[in-house]
Amino acid sequence: MRVALFVTCLVDLMRPRIGFAAIELLEAAGCEVVVPPAQTCCGQPAWNSGDREAAAKLAKKVIAEFEGYEWVVAPSGSCADHIRTEYPVILADEPAWRERAVALASRVHELTDFLVNVAQLAEVPGNFAGSVTYHDSCTGLRSLGIKDQPRALLAKLPGVELREMAGAEECCGFGGTFAVKFGEISAAIAERKCANACATHAAAIVGGDLGCLLNIEGKLRRMGDAQTEVLHIAEVLTRKR
């Protein structure tokens, strides 16, 4: 299986190790991984800010770059959903482009969903041990149905103890541009999420979307917690002791 990795702009800028972990996982599942070099951003910030023109421009760029591959995988439910669900909406008025968006959509997957449901990864490469709690990111959960997939993968690590937090499905308060437009509200929501996560006394808070994780990590550190790790699911699945 030939897979194009959509790295996401946040992973590219902030946490390259998540991108490498994603490649390792995909290769472990027997995929040949390609990283189209000119990729930038899926355009979600523009779309969610109401800038349809910019969103359409970036959508076309991503479609042109990725439509030639059998599969497209992103280590983010939010970006994967944007390409899958929103591109056909964004390009609704341009039939030719819309058709290309639709043709691409069904081949785009969030990482854990792809590993479990498409590539059917048998063994994960890491041997992480410790207690973790999982934050379900909103778009992945509610639009793509990412709920059991990361948990199924965590279950392949015998040393991992999953401690579900109260309100695991509640928003962490990130919301993309929301976090920089309404910082106070966003941080107050994040505080609730961190309190719920910390109440499990898990050693690490794990999730599938870097935006949420940066928000949670930032709040956690501000609250004075320097111990609890905040990790992307791909990092957990590939980490070696």
Binding site: V7, V11, D12, L13, M14, R15, P16, R17, G19, F20, A179, V180, K181, F182, G183, E184, S186, A187, A188, A190, E191, L214, N215, E217, G218, K219, R221, R222, V230
Partner: peptide, 16 residues
């Protein structure tokens, strides 16, 4: 707005 209520985690320093 971000750092008023929380820290901004540091990046690794090189892009993916």
């Amino acid at each position: 707005e971000w750092t008023a209520g929380r820290d901004f985690p540091a990046p690794e320093g090189r892009t993916f």
